[in-house]
Design a binder for these strands. Structure first.
Length: 255
DNA sequence: ATGGCGCGCGCAGCGCGA
């Protein structure tokens, strides 16, 4: 089973990239973020033509998540339980024997801002809910744009970024809390090249210069981590014309 | 890197992302 996550930064604009990428990679399950697409205009026909069923919860202009899968999804959850939120940022469902959570963690804008405090509160609610979800579903995969670079090796210039949003100690503490639930950062189960990132600013030739951050992640419960044989970042879509600023992350599970 | 890009909305230029 091949799992993937990709912040597409507008599903409408990225639909051709996505269709080509689905054909090339043939993942079984794909979590999308920043679809910026209301449900009544979701491109269901094109996604089905690509061979996938879709669950989605979206809104105009901002946010929006979708879960694409070749198989049938059951027990869907469309909001973060225990957290009042007008923003469409979370989707969960069971696919085969795996519980999949797709999330788009708030960006936080700047440390100390209202959006930053919203981000921390959202993450606190996520940690609390995932603790329960792990009890119910031992085979749990959490994929998405976490908007957190967990360690300095996930940052192209840790000195420049020190204390900033996406790397601040408070945000990293929430990420560690997810690991302390037992979830494993699938990317770090394997040796990886230095300078592995999933996001690069559109400005300043950041991608060409590899000035990036690793903020998109696949977390696996112990039972799934045991089955994980590979995890990698696919930078090919970031090289295309009109790319998303994020690259997809993929993981392969045995069985 | 800190103005610089790309998106949505909507028709100018701003808010937002990270």
């Amino acid at each position: 089973m091949k799992l993937a996550t990709w912040n597409v930064n507008s599903l409408k604009v990225r639909l051709p990239h996505l269709a080509d990428w689905l054909a090339g990679q043939a993942p079984d399950i794909v979590c999308l973020q920043e679809t910026k697409t209301e449900d009544h205009v979701f491109p269901r026909t094109q996604i089905e033509a690509a061979g996938y069923r879709a669950l989605y919860t979206g809104q105009k202009t901002y946010n929006g998540v979708a879960l694409l899968a070749k198989g049938k999804a059951t027990d869907p959850v469309l909001t973060l339980p225990g957290f009042e939120d007008a923003q469409k940022r979370l989707l969960a469902a069971t696919l085969d024997d795996v519980r999949v959570v797709c999330l788009y963690v708030p960006n936080g804008q700047s440390v100390g801002s209202d959006k930053y405090h919203y981000k921390l509160a959202w993450l606190d609610a996520l940690v609390a809910w995932l603790a329960q979800e792990l009890e119910r579903h031992p085979r749990l995969a959490v994929l998405g744009d976490f908007n957190i670079a967990p360690e300095d090796r996930d940052v192209h210039d840790p000195t420049l970024w020190a204390g900033q949003v996406l790397v601040s100690p408070e945000e990293r503490a929430r990420f560690r809390a997810l690991l302390e639930l037992g979830l494993k950062d699938a990317f770090r189960l394997f040796d990886q090249p230095e300078g592995s990132y999933t996001w690069w600013d559109y400005r300043m030739g950041a991608f060409r210069r590899n000035l990036g951050l690793r903020i998109d992640h696949i977390l696996l419960s112990p039972a799934l981590a045991e089955r994980c044989t590979a995890c990698w970042i696919d930078t090919a879509p970031r090289r295309l014309p009109r790319p998303s600023d994020h690259a997809p992350v993929l993981a392969e599970l045995e069985g």
